[in-house]
């Protein structure tokens, strides 16, 4: 333990899912932790608001949560006791075609494969081993680069994940399988011909076939609320409406963890960083942006395709 009196053992700046996770992990070890949020409400990308009309609530950013469910850390927490309920739509995803047909992702690997006709075997061959061993490899995949606990299985994931989504799609013949695959890979926010774009597609398909793609009852904010409620029950402190512009604003602490991107870290803590590290952060690259719409609707969307 470090010596010297400080206001807190640790401070976490930013209350998105990662800031909340960091704060909880440290509070669990009986450190005293202060979690700071610049906005009025905690949650980062996990916020739900009445964006359109009174009585209509919308997830401002994330809405569907395969990875929250698959997360080895979140899984270890009693979030249900803190009010979190997941709802599982019977069909994780569907991709419509203009003629009214569609590609459908079902919870079951075999059932999904069956709908892909000629690509039934190719689909199963791509995913069966990984789906079966997901509980063993999830910890290794959702982690920094390290020696994996299951090297053979990780290699099976790795060689597939590192290829580009366009080259991987050559395994498939049917438009349904190709569309399903490309739709998953498009979550990578970069051209599908880029190397390693298969990784996100594989993880999304595996999670659909293992835990499912749930939404949080009452909106994504419920996930943040459950995490915060558990954090506070452990003795953690939260301060909202505190936008951090510089290190000088912060109470004293032995460790400070920032749930922010390199550009903001340069602004807040630039003077305490080495010139090499600042140079590295300045060369960090951001990807495509998103344009988002939320609708209040009189009736469900009348898709021609049945799902």
């Amino acid at each position: 333990m470090p010596t010297g009196k400080k206001d807190f053992d640790a401070i976490v700046v930013g209350s998105g899912p990662n800031g909340l996770a960091a704060a909880i992990a440290m509070q669990q070890q009986h450190l005293s932790v202060l979690l700071i949020e610049g906005k009025e409400t905690i949650g980062g990308g996990l916020r739900t608001q009445e964006l359109t009309l009174p009585g209509f609530i919308h997830d401002v950013c994330s809405a569907i949560h395969p990875l929250a469910l698959a997360s080895p850390f979140f899984k270890s927490l009693p979030l249900h006791d803190h009010g979190l309920e997941y709802i599982f739509p019977p069909i994780p995803a569907a991709h419509p075609f203009e003629d009214g047909t569609e590609a459908v992702l079902l919870p079951g690997l075999d059932k999904t494969a069956k709908l892909l006709g000629q690509d039934q075997d190719a689909y199963k061959q791509l995913l069966a081993l990984l789906v079966g061993s997901w509980p063993k490899i999830a910890n290794d995949i959702l982690a920094p680069l390290h020696l994996p606990a299951h090297p053979y299985l990780m290699a099976q994931f790795g060689w597939k994940a590192l290829s580009s989504a366009t080259s991987m799609s050559k395994r498939f013949i049917t438009p349904e399988a190709k569309a399903l695959w490309a739709g998953m890979a498009a979550h990578a926010l970069q051209p599908l011909s880029n190397i390693a774009t298969s990784a996100i597609a594989l993880v999304l398909l595996i999670t659909a076939h293992t835990g499912g793609w749930p939404l949080a009852k009452g909106g994504s904010q419920s996930i943040a609320h459950a995490l915060a409620s558990y954090f506070v029950s452990l003795g953690g402190k939260i301060q909202t409406n505190f936008y951090v512009h510089s290190m000088e604003q912060l109470p004293s602490a032995h460790a400070i963890l920032f749930d922010i991107t390199p550009r903001q870290l340069l602004q807040i803590a630039g003077h305490s960083l080495s010139s090499l590290y600042k140079w590295q952060l300045n060369h960090y690259r951001y990807g495509m942006g998103v344009y988002k719409i939320d609708w209040a609707l009189a009736e469900p969307i009348p898709f021609i395709a049945p799902h």
Partner: peptide
């Protein structure tokens, strides 16, 4: 009902 959508 509500719907949520985005594009890149």
């Amino acid at each position: 009902h509500t719907a949520w959508a985005y594009c890149h």
